[in-house]
Structure formats: structure tokens, C-alpha cells
Computed example of a mutant assay.
Amino acid sequence: MNNKWKQIVAISAIAGISWLLVQNPYTNHYLIVLKEEAASVSAQKDTLYLEIDNKAIRYEAPPSEAKIDPIWKAVPGYNGLKVDIEASYHAMKKSGKFDEKKLIYKQVSPKTHLSDLDPAPIYRAHPEKPVVSLLVNVAWGNEYLQGMLTTLKKTNVKATFFLEGRWAKNNPMLAKMIAEGGHEIGNHSYSHPDMKTLSSSASKSEIQKTSEVIVAVTEAKEKPKWFAPPSGSYRDETVEIADSLGMGTIMWSVDTIDWQKPSPDVLTNRVLSKIHPGAFILMHPTESSANSLETLIKEMKKKNLHIVTVSEALEETRIVH
């Protein structure tokens, strides 16, 4: 048999086998099942996708614009949330079921930011942000400062320390110890004057000189971003001067009143009864605060409040649990 006939026979055999497979009722059934399964998977994907799309709005939140509030003065913005439909679908497609815990979000930035506002003091972070910040004003209290730093390290918490310039100049090792602990450092004037009655030139000198000292003793690469007026005393011009020097003015929404030397129980109850999302908590290196600090931190964490620096608290990034 020559090659041509061999090819004809082979082709005929393949054609015959193919015809038998197609006509075989079992083969037909198998193909139908495969098609139905493929259609089912496709329908399931479409249904899940549509379910995510339909339910997304329940989990989304619009951004909050930064604003000047008549009571709270400058209030930072806060990112909104939008569900990423495609990413959420891929996160759920393996199970084929909707699961809100697997939703993937995109953060939506507000149009107006803190930097867009006219200079105004800041008393707290955004009231929907589950954060609090410890503001430690330092002009004295060396004997309690190291204990507070030890507690902060032990509990893995970073605070914002506002240093008086004169204190930082006289205690460079302690100032550097604060910086090396990873804490944020702010400006608390040079000689603790009443900024409300101080002249414009003297106010500028107090703030400017303090920033220079802080940079020198801590070897910081940048000047402080935040200014805390002594005793919370200021006038509008004070805030404007700080702004002209690249600093926001920070106040507080919860006061430990630790200078009155309350017992740890009194101080702790005072703070926890007034704590709120976005709180700025004022304290000093006192025996009362040093002895209350660890309990305060533990109790605030139990309330699902993140303890962060002022800069972190004022960021627009939304915290999603």
C-alpha cells in the first residue's frame, strides 16, 4: 500500500471515530453538562458582581472638608471611602459569596484641606477619626520625664512633646532623648510668656528662637511644625505669626489639670470621662501624669482609640477597622 492510500485510510478512520463520538449519547450528555456548568459559573460571577455593586453604597462614606468651626476653630478634613467593585469582586470570587469583610476600599480625598484654611488654632483632630494624641508641655518636671518616656516605650506609644526653648537649651540630653524615642517635638515658646499680651516682634522672636534651639539640640532635619502657646494664651496675631513661621497652633480638648497634683485615680477618671475621638490630651511631666500614664493608655486602647502624634492625628487618612 503506498503512502497516499495510507493517508486516505488514516483520515477515514479519524473521521469515523469522530462521528461515533458525536453520535454517542453519553458524549452528548457530557458536553451539555460542561456547557451548563460554564453558564452557571458565569451567571454566579455576574450575580456576585451585581450584588457588590448594589450593596457598595451602604459601606461608602463621603469625604469631610476641612473647615473653620465657630467653637472648635480649625477642623481637619477626613477622607471618604468608596468601594472598589472590581477588586472586591476578585477578593470574593473564590467563595462566590458576598462578604463585607472582604470589601476593598479606595479613599477619597476632600477638596478643602487644613492648609487651605486661614490661620486658626486646632483643638482636636477630626471628630470621626478614632485617634487621640498626648500633648506633653515641657518647661520643668525633669524628675518625672524619664519615667514617662519609659512608659511610652513600654506601651509602644508616640506622643508630641512641646518643648520650651530655654528648657531645651538647659537640658539638651533630655531633649535629644525625647527625639530619639521617636516622639514628635513641637514649639512651646522660649521663656513661657503670656503670648496674648506679648508684642508682635517679641512673639516672633520667642517662637523663632525656640525652633532654632530645638533643631540644634536634637539634631533634627526640620523645624517643628506645631506651636503650643504657654497656658493656652494667645490672640489671633499669635496664630498668624506662628503660621508665617510655618507652624500650626495647637490647643487641647481634654485637660489632665495635672499641675494640681491629683491622685492617679482622679486624673484617670477625669480624662476617661471626657475622652472622645480626635481628642488632644494636655499633660505635663508631673508625678500625677507619670503615675497615671500607663493606665490611661491601656483604657484608651480598650476603647479602640489609636494613640498617635499630632501630625498623624491631623492627617486626612481614614482609619478603617
Rank of each mutant, 00 (worst) to 15 (best):
N2I: 06
W5I: 05
K6D: 13
V9S: 05
I11F: 12
I14Y: 00
I17L: 13
W19H: 03
L21M: 10
Q23K: 14
L31I: 10
I32A: 11
K35Y: 06
E36F: 09
E37G: 02
S40H: 04
S40P: 00
V41F: 07
V41E: 09
A43Q: 14
T47N: 10
L48P: 15
L48M: 12
E51C: 12
A56F: 12
A61Y: 14
A61N: 06
P63F: 06
S64I: 05
S64C: 05
G77D: 06
N79V: 06
K82S: 07
K82I: 02
S88I: 11
A91E: 11
K93W: 07
K97P: 08
D99G: 04
D99F: 00
E100W: 04
E100V: 03
L103K: 00
I104E: 13
V108P: 05
S109E: 07
T112K: 09
L114G: 09
L117D: 15
I122F: 14
H126G: 15
P127A: 13
E128S: 10
K129E: 12
L135E: 09
V136A: 11
N137G: 00
V138M: 11
W140K: 01
N142S: 11
N142R: 08
Y144K: 05
T155A: 00
T155L: 03
N156S: 08
A159W: 03
T160V: 00
K169V: 04
N171W: 03
M173Q: 13
E180L: 05
E184S: 09
G186D: 05
G186N: 03
G186P: 03
H192T: 06
D194M: 02
K196A: 11
T197L: 01
L198V: 04
A202G: 00
S203A: 03
S205D: 04
I207F: 02
I207D: 04
T210L: 01
T210I: 04
S211V: 02
T218E: 06
T218W: 04
T218P: 00
A220S: 13
E222P: 01
P224I: 11
P224S: 08
K225T: 09
K225D: 04
P230K: 11
G232I: 08
Y234M: 04
E240M: 02
E240N: 02
G246D: 03
P262E: 09
T268M: 04
R270C: 05
V271T: 13
K274V: 00
I275Y: 11
I275C: 07
H276L: 10
A279L: 12
P285V: 15
S288P: 07
S289A: 10
E294R: 08
T295I: 05
H306F: 09
T309C: 06
S311M: 09
A313C: 15
A313V: 14
E315T: 08
T317G: 12
R318T: 13
V320L: 15
